[in-house]
């Protein structure tokens, strides 16, 4: 579904993605972790070309993202992206937030889009908040609207960049619950997160990054109980003592 072949990216001198090789199968849930600045966000932002890569091949659902000539609109329509800071449109209600892209990009008609939008908002537990504006919602609710916004596009892939890091502890679980349900329903997902409980429960594999490289790829239980590298051990210690 997502295939990185020797992908490289630099910001000036900084080698943010260093020879990345990774194959993500349909229905897999990949959790990406690693220290700050290791390139986790960049890794997933390349998938819909929020960041372009400079070398290598990145193929998403059969489409060549590394090829400058590829029209990204179609690929982007297939991928939901959830940001750390929600990034909802503040002048639109929850429902309008979810329907704008289906209407304008997918070409759904208004009735279809609204039906789907309501369905997705209900699915993330916000049936009673459909006409609220983002400023009238808590952080956890806003992030769930953001997830519903992604889902209303009927995506094949969902990407999450630290979806719970901006939330108060008591709201984290409501967002993780939604993500857990998605994972169990077979959505292909890549999530940058340090929520180890979530990773243990639903991740197919954990990708551990440091300094732009993938250091380890392993099933969550193997990685958490028996990391193969010193950097992996050191990282796990640092998040456990936190």
């Amino acid at each position: 579904m997502i295939s990185y072949k020797n992908v490289n990216k630099w910001y000036g001198e900084l080698h943010v993605l260093n020879s990345i090789n990774l194959e993500v199968e349909k229905g897999e849930v990949i959790v990406v972790c690693g220290p700050s600045g290791s390139g986790k966000s960049t890794l997933i932002r390349c998938i819909n070309r929020l960041e372009p890569i400079q070398e290598g091949e990145l193929v998403v659902d059969g489409m060549a993202v590394h090829d400058k000539k590829t029209n990204m609109t179609k690929i982007r329509a297939e991928i939901g992206f959830v940001f750390q800071s929600f990034n909802l449109y503040p002048h639109m209600t929850a429902l309008e937030n979810t329907t704008i892209a289906p209407l304008k990009v997918r070409g759904f008609n208004k009735a279809e889009a609204e039906k789907l939008g309501r369905e997705m908002l209900t699915r993330v537990g916000l049936a009673d908040r459909i006409d609220h504006y983002p400023a009238q919602l808590s952080g956890g609710q806003q992030q769930r609207v953001a997830i519903a916004r992604g889902l209303t596009m009927k995506p094949k892939i969902m990407l999450f960049d630290e979806p719970t890091s901006a939330l108060d502890p008591e709201m984290i679980h409501e967002v993780l619950d939604v993500m857990r349900d998605l994972a169990k329903e077979g959505m292909t997902m890549m999530a940058v997160t340090h929520e180890m409980g979530f990773a243990r429960e639903v991740a197919s594999r954990v990708v551990f990054m440091d300094e732009g490289k993938i250091i380890e790829i392993a099933p969550p239980n193997d990685f958490f109980t028996n990391p193969q590298t010193d950097r992996g051990k050191y990282f796990l210690q640092s998040i456990l003592t936190h």
Binding site: N87, Y89, P90, I100
Partner: peptide
């Protein structure tokens, strides 16, 4: 961030202007 969210969902430059940026 809102503009990025628009890009990520496939909205074109004109659509982002029209529906996200200009109204605000």
């Amino acid at each position: 961030g809102q503009i990025e969210a628009g890009i990520a969902s496939g909205l074109s430059y004109i659509q982002r202007m029209r529906f996200i940026i200009l109204p605000q």
